Every structure is written in structure tokens, then in C-alpha cells.
Amino acid sequence: MKVIKEGFTIYHNFPIKALSNKVFKAIANPDELVHWWPLKCSGKPTIGAEYNFFFGEPYNWFGEVVECKENTSFHIKMTKSDKDWNPTTFGFDLFEKDDGVTWVHFFHKGWIEQNDHFKHSSYCWALLLNGLKNYVEKGIIIPFEKRN
């Protein structure tokens, strides 16, 4: 019997004071992703579409949309990145509450080991997701070179 190992996962759950459609646009629309994550981005929020996340050379990464439910979920399977990220999938699941707050359940799964890059990526995601929150709630855009 073959045992399948799923690897390790980064999780971050947090509220954003906005409706889910606004949060979804910020996580799935390349024109808005660049306000809180990559320097440049392209792609369409449809299953099977390719996204390009460009962070400056040599960080020109690609992923495939593996789940996309408008205003509910958006997941990307990395296809061309560095060796630690290649086997991984990251995603956002959105849960809108009655009081105009959307809870974001973020994950980045499939890490082979909990190495220094895993730990650093978890920290970076926390900072970037706070940038997402500030962008959606307050319109704050942190310049790319200061997103570290």
C-alpha cells in the first residue's frame, strides 16, 4: 500500500470589513493583485487559466487556476516557480457575514518540508495578507519595493 504524503500547510484566517465581491476582485483580478502582492500580474479568474506572477528577475512565476467560484473561492496550483513552491497550491476561501465582514481563510499547501523557506513564506504571507486587508478596507497601496 502506497502512502500519499500531502506535505505541510500555511494557514491564515482573518476578517476584512468589506463584502466578498470586493475581496474576490482584490485576490483574483491581476490589476488589483499588483496593489498588494506581485510587481506585475496577468491571468483570468477561470478554471484552467494561467496566471503570471512577476516579482522581478529571476522571480517570474506561473500558476494554474484550479478552483474559482466567484466571490467564494480562488485557488492557484503553482506550475513554474522555485523548487519549494512548485509542488504547492495556495488559495482563498471567502465567508461573508451579515455585518458586511468577509472572513478570509487562506492556505498554502503541499510544502514538502518545513524548511527555512516555508517559515519565511508563512511570515511573508502574513505581511502581504495584512496588505490585502489594508488595500480592500482603506485603499492603501504599499509600493512593491516596500513589501517585504
Results as ranks from 00 to 15, higher is better:
1 M>T: 14
4 I>Q: 11
6 E>V: 10
6 E>N: 14
9 T>I: 04
12 H>L: 11
14 F>I: 03
14 F>S: 05
20 S>V: 02
24 F>A: 01
27 I>H: 01
27 I>D: 02
31 D>H: 04
32 E>H: 13
37 W>H: 07
41 C>T: 10
43 G>S: 11
44 K>N: 11
46 T>Y: 07
48 G>Q: 07
53 F>K: 02
54 F>K: 08
55 F>H: 15
55 F>Q: 13
60 N>W: 03
61 W>H: 07
65 V>G: 03
65 V>C: 05
65 V>R: 01
69 K>V: 15
70 E>M: 10
70 E>W: 03
71 N>M: 10
73 S>W: 02
74 F>Q: 02
76 I>C: 08
76 I>W: 01
78 M>P: 04
82 D>E: 12
83 K>G: 04
84 D>R: 11
84 D>C: 15
85 W>G: 06
87 P>R: 11
91 G>Q: 01
95 F>H: 13
100 G>F: 06
100 G>E: 05
103 W>P: 04
104 V>R: 00
106 F>Q: 03
107 F>K: 00
108 H>L: 06
114 Q>N: 08
115 N>R: 12
118 F>G: 14
118 F>N: 09
119 K>I: 07
120 H>T: 12
121 S>F: 11
126 A>M: 05
127 L>M: 13
129 L>D: 00
131 G>R: 08
133 K>G: 15
133 K>Y: 05
138 K>E: 12
139 G>H: 03
142 I>H: 01
143 P>Q: 06
145 E>I: 07
147 R>G: 08
